[in-house]
């Protein structure tokens, strides 16, 4: 399906930008960190509302008293996926994400709880 094209300042700014940047912009516009947007976390998660997966703020609240220990567990969950804490639907594995990036995304999620 095609949709009408409407000229806007944003469209002009996006001209010539590679697709990776274009798709990541959807996540950035929704308040995700650049890394979380780049890895397309917005497909299943939002900051405040439940999507396919839980809101990031809810994840941060759950581990508010356990942040340091939760970094590694969340990072491994990002990479390996799986079900358990938030219902029966398993999160998709994201094996393309490096451990360093997964830890950085986990730290960003957990820091949301401080706000």
């Amino acid at each position: 399906m095609k949709i009408p094209r409407c000229a806007s300042v944003a469209t002009i700014l996006l001209l010539g930008a590679p697709a990776a940047t274009l798709a990541a912009d959807a996540g950035l516009a929704q308040g995700l960190s650049p890394l979380a947007a780049h890895q397309h976390c917005d497909e299943c998660h939002a900051l405040k509302e439940a999507r396919i997966g839980p809101p990031f703020l809810a994840v941060a609240a759950r581990y508010a008293n356990d942040r340091d220990a939760a970094v590694n567990r969340l990072a491994l969950k990002i990479i390996n996926g799986g079900a358990g804490n938030w219902g029966t639907v398993p999160m998709v594995p994201n094996e393309r994400v490096s451990m360093a990036d997964a830890r950085a995304i986990a730290r960003w999620i957990l820091a949301l709880g401080r706000g």
Binding site: M1, D25, C44
Partner: peptide
Amino acid sequence: KQMNYISNVEFGRAGNLV
């Protein structure tokens, strides 16, 4: 649903539809 989201981003990018 995830695939629908990806389609919406892909098809909406010229109009910057988030």
